[in-house]
Simulated assay, not measured.
Amino acid sequence: MTIKKFLKRTLAILLLLLTFLFIYLATPRVTNTDPKFQTELIYGDPIDTTIKNILTPKKEPKRTRSIVILQNEKIIYEYGPTDKIMNTASIRKSILGILYGIAVDRGLVNIKKTLAELKIDESIPLTNQEKTATIQHLLMFKSGIYLPSQGEHDSQITDRPKRESYKPGDYFFSNNFDANALGTIFMQETGMSIGKFMEKYLAIPMGLQDFSEQNVILGDPWFWPKKESKHKQYYIYLSTRDLARIGAMIANEGQWGGKQIVSKKWVAQSTISYSNLKENHINYGRYDGFGYQWWLSSDTNTIWADGYGERFLIINPNQNLTLVEQNFTGNSLLTTGLWLMNGNMDSGIESLIKAHDLIAK
């Protein structure tokens, strides 16, 4: 073979490999669906111009942002691509809390069961004390289990207490062990994947517009260095309009469109505070309480879900009001990598809070 032919063949192989690599990097984790069960949201009277001006950015934000506000199940404000599915990050935990409520209502789960009874362990074996933690303790972030877990970051690592420094039920600490183990337990006890259960018992009865069971991914779909754990992180992808619909259901005591999706009892039980965060040595900012995977603010009587990448769900049951902001943080290795390189964490949360306060008045 001549040098010229060798170089041509080598170049062709390199181009082919680069093409495959680009396809791999650009392939989205999940794609938008058009489910047969979807129902359109209804529009209500729009918010007044003053509040609209507060919410609408003066110039286009540096990344894709969408906002939806619902009151009495009707859209009163929307901005951006509200149908675009996005990684909800830690908002996933609040959604799983709702699914637990549905499972409890159906007699599939007993939240008083201990990890020992459930035969739940970890790669670093749990101690006898740690195994006395119940599902309820995990829902409250009071398991007393302080081990490395998938997807943890920042204060979850730096502020993690020493093992067995607190007994289950004694101390609040927001950690991914509790959240990820809840995913493992949920699938074990219901006999269904999180995605399948969510589609059957939440998406279909609520008529979510952009959801299918494939919107929930268990474990990272690509090769990433992971912390060894028996409990995989789960990802839930939702459009902003679907996330707002779920929040509005909680605002209305578990009802949507006249249907009881999750019991009033569970909504009440899961949205009261079991922890005084003002007495906690870690500063949790605007939140002073925590329920079953819900952050709480007593100053405004609001319920919050909060996800990495500056995404927020604010629920005001007294006003039957729900406000959602989502920011696109990627849906493939390529788009996620570009977002991480950009380091863009801009948020409209202060505007969202101001808008909430004005609407609530």
Rank of each mutant, 00 (worst) to 15 (best):
L15I: 14
L15P: 01
L16C: 11
L16D: 02
L21K: 09
A26Q: 02
T27C: 06
Y43M: 12
E60W: 09
R65C: 11
I67M: 08
T82K: 10
N87G: 00
I91K: 02
V109F: 06
E117I: 12
E117C: 11
N128R: 04
Q129L: 14
Q136A: 15
S143L: 06
Q156H: 01
I157K: 10
S165E: 15
D170W: 01
F172S: 06
S174N: 11
G183R: 06
K200C: 04
L202V: 05
L202Y: 02
M206Y: 11
G207S: 14
L208S: 13
Q209K: 14
F211I: 04
W224V: 15
P225V: 12
P225N: 08
S229M: 13
I236Q: 04
I246N: 06
G257K: 01
G257M: 10
Q260D: 05
R286F: 06
D288F: 02
I303D: 06
W304R: 10
D306I: 00
Y308K: 02
L313T: 14
I315P: 09
L321M: 04
F328E: 09
T329E: 15
W339I: 02
W339E: 12
L340T: 08
M341Y: 11
G343L: 09
M345V: 05
M345C: 00
I349R: 14
I359V: 14
A360C: 07
